[in-house]
Design a protein around this nucleic acid. Sequence first.
RNA 1: GGGCGUAUGUCGGAAUCGGUAGACGAGACGGUCUCAAAAACCGUUAGUAGUAAUACUGUGUGAGUUCAAGUCUCACUACGCCCACCA
Length: 811
Amino acid sequence: MEREENMYNFSKIEKKWQKYWEDNSSFKVENDKSKKPYYILVEFPYPSGSGLHVGHVRSYTAQDAIARLKRMQGYNVLYPMGWDAFGAPAEQYAIKNHIHPSEAVKENIKTFKGQMKSLGFSFDWSREFSTTDPEYYKWTQWQFLQFYKHGMAYKDTIPVNWCPNCKTVLSNEDAAGGVCERCGETVVQKEKSQWMLKMSDYAEDLLKGLDDTNFADKVKLGQINWIGKSTGVEVDIDLSTGSKFSIFTTCIETIYGITFFVIAPDGKLIKELMPNVENKEEVLEYIEETKKKSNMDRTELNKGKTGVEVKGIKAINPVNGKEVPIFLGDFVLGDYGTGAVMAVPAHDERDYEYAKAHNLEVIEVITGGDLKEKAYEKYDYLENPDARLINSEEFNGKSVMDAKKSITDMLVKKGIARVVNNYKMRDWIFSRQRFWGEPIPMIYCDKCGWQPMDEKDLPLLLPNVAEYEPTDNGESPLAKITEWVNTTCPKCGGKAKRETDTMPNWAGSSWYFLRFMDPHNEKEFASMDAMKYWNKVDWYNGGMEHTARHLLYARFWVQFLYNIGLVPNKEMIWTRISHGMILGENGEKMSKSKGNVVNPDDIIKEYGADALRTYEMFIGDYEKDASWSENGLKGCFKFLDRVYRLGEKLNGKDEYSKETEILINQTIKKVTDDLLNIKYNTAVSALMILLNELEKLDSVSNKDYRTYLHLLNPIAPHITEELNEKYNLGDMFINSSFPTYDSNKLENNTYTMVVQVNGKVRGKMEVDSNTSEDDMKSLALTIDNVKFYTDNKEIVKVIVIPKKLVNIVVK
RNA sequence: GGGCGUAUGUCGGAAUCGGUAGACGAGACGGUCUCAAAAACCGUUAGUAGUAAUACUGUGUGAGUUCAAGUCUCACUACGCCCACCA
C-alpha cells in the first residue's frame, strides 16, 4: 500500500506541528521596541461547560490568519487569549454540585484550551489569564476604587427585576418577556440600593470618540443609537400650588397645543406633589400597580394608555397661562428627561391615545399636521414644508422650523427654559446580587458611611464556602457569610460590614485588552510603557451582539482611565469588525434542543483542523450568518487533499512556471488584499482557482509550490508547513516573509475584448493589451456577428472602455 | 413604532469604479477505472428554443437615470437583526 504511506495524514501532521509550536513557544511575543507592533484581538470566551462552538472557530481562525500573515510581513504580533469566566452558569453549576465555581471554571478552561490548541491558533499563551484570577480581579477592583475616588461611582436606589418565586434578582435577559426564565413566574420591580457608574457624564465624549476609531459604520451607528442623543427644550411649568416642575420636549413648537401634562408614576416628582394631592389613594394605587409591571409589560403592551388624574393640582401653560390637568401615566419614564411631559394630543400619537382614553381636549396648533382618527404620522408636519402654526398667538403663520427657534428663544429669554441634550443611555448599574463576580471593595460603617477599601488590601478575595444560593431577600449569597461580611472600618477602625454585591460580567471584559499588553505586572494593571508600545488594539473582532453594550462599556472604562492619566489614548480600539453566526444545517441557530449542534472536536477528528479552518473561511461573507454544510466541509477537505497530492508533480525548478506566472502574481495580490479586507471566502476561492490551473500543468516548479503553500499557510498552517518541510522547499513559514507580487506581472499580454451593440454582448475577441482605443473600435467592427447587427444601421456613438469593452450604439 | 441590513441558479455564495451576471464550492447527471462499490479523475449543469452557431428571457416587485444597472435614484414587498411608550 504505497499510496497509504504518502497520504494526507492530517491527524499526525497537525499534532506534530502543534507540538513544535508549543515546544518552541513560536508565538510568544515580547514588548520589543525595535519591531512594529500589531495587536489582534478576539473577544475572549466565557468557558462554558459545552465547550468550544464552531462559531468561535470562525472568528478565531479569521483573526489567526491575519495574525500569521502580519507576522510574516514583519510585524511584532500580539494575538492573546484569556477567559471571561465570571457569570451565572458557573454559579448555577456550583449551587447544584456544592463545589466552588472556580473548580468548574478550571475544568472548562482546560477543555477550551485543549480545543484551541487542536485548531492550531497562534495565541501567545504566555499572556493567558482569567478574569477570575485574583491577580486580575485585584485590578478590576482597584479600578472601581478609582471610579469611586473620582466621584464616578455612587449608590442609588433603583428598581430591579425580582422573581417572587425564586426570590432572586434577575438580569434583563433572564426576565425577558416579563417572566422569570427559570420558573415562569411574573417578574415584578423591587427597589434596591445599587452601585452605579456615572456613564451618562461620558455620553458626549463617547459620541465624539467615535471619530478617533475605524469602526465599521454599522458599529458606529449601533453606538450612536445606544447613546440616543436628542436635543430639545426643558421648560419650567408653574403649578397651582405655587411650586413648579420641568418638562422636556423636542417639539416646543406645539406648546400652545398643551391640554394636559403627564408625569411618571415611578419618578420623584409625584412624591413631591403628594401632600397636595386630593385623590391620594387612587394615585398611590396606580403607583403600586406600575411597580408590579415589569419593563416588558410597560413597553410591549403599548395599546392601553393607563393612568389617573392627579387631582387638586393644576399646571399652568407658560405661554398662555391656561390651567390644565396633570395625570400619572406609565408611558412616561421616571428616569428619562425630567420624568414629565407636556401632552399635545393633536400632534403626538401617544398623547392622542392618552387623551382619547381619558376624554381630554385636543387643540390643533399646526395645519397640515392634524391628527385624524386613522392615518396618523407622528412627524408628518415636519416633512410638510407648508405646515404653519395656528392657535398660537403671535407665532401663527410661522413655519415649524421658524417657530421652533422663536418659541425657544422667547422662553429662554424669559428665563423659564433651557436648550438641553438628553441621552437614552443611563448610568451603569454596577451591582449584581450574585456570588460569582468580583466583590465590590467597599465597606459600610454606621459612623463613617461607605468607605473604600485600602488599595493595599486588594484583592478582596471571594470566600471559599459550600453554599451559593441567594438569600431570601435578594441579597447576594455573600451576605450569608458573616465572617467575610464583618470587618472593620478603614477610617475609624470600628465595626463595619462589607458590600455583598458583586460586579457585573461586563466589568472584567471592559479592560482585559489592556492587561494583555502587560499581563504579569504586579505593580500596575499595565504599565504606561507597555501600553504606549502596543498603542491600540489594531483589529478587534467579536459578535454583533456585543457591538453595542460591551464595546460601549469598554470605551467608557478606557475614557475614564485616560482622563485620570492611566492609559495613553482616549480610544484604545482602532478597528472593530463583527462576524456573522454559524447556523445549523437547517438554517436555525445551533442549540442542543434543536439537535443541530456541530462539535468542532468531531470535525477535527474526521477531517482535520486545517479542513475545518479552511471551510469556515470559505463558508460565506464573514460578516453575515452562514449555515453549516457537511458537504461544503468535505469539499474543503478534498481541496487540501489535492494540495497535498500536487507535491507529487514537483520538477525541482526554482522559478515560476511560465504558464502560471501571471496567475500566481495575481493570486498573491488577491489573497493578501482579501485577507486584510475580511474577504476570507474569496481568498480561499482564489487559491482554489490557482490550484485548478497548477493541476493542469505536467509538472510544477518548487517555487510555484512553495509560494502556493505560503499563501495558504495563514488559513491552513499545519499541512502547508508539513509539505514545505517534506519537499525541502525552504525555511519554515513562521520564519519567512510572506510572498510579494511583481506588479509588472499582474497582466497577460492579451485580454478578451467584449463588443456590445446597443448594450447587448454580440461578440468577443482576444486582443493585445496595448491595443489603442481606435484600434479597439475598428477591430470590434470586424466581428461577423457585430457586423450583422450594425450593417445598414447608423452608428450614433461608440463607447470604448480601455482593456474591457466596446459598445456600439446604432439606430 | 424607530434604526440598520439583506433579497442573485437546486444550495452556500462571486461580481474593486455602473461595463461579459452566476467565479469558487456543493449537489445533480453522464463517463473513465473496478467483478462491484467507495475514493480519485474527466465532462455537463440559470431557463426556454435549436444538432449547432445563436437568439430570447433572467439578479424580490414596479418605475426612473444611463450608450450600459445585480450595482445608482424613487416607491413597494418579504425576511433578518438591534432598539423600543425615550417626550
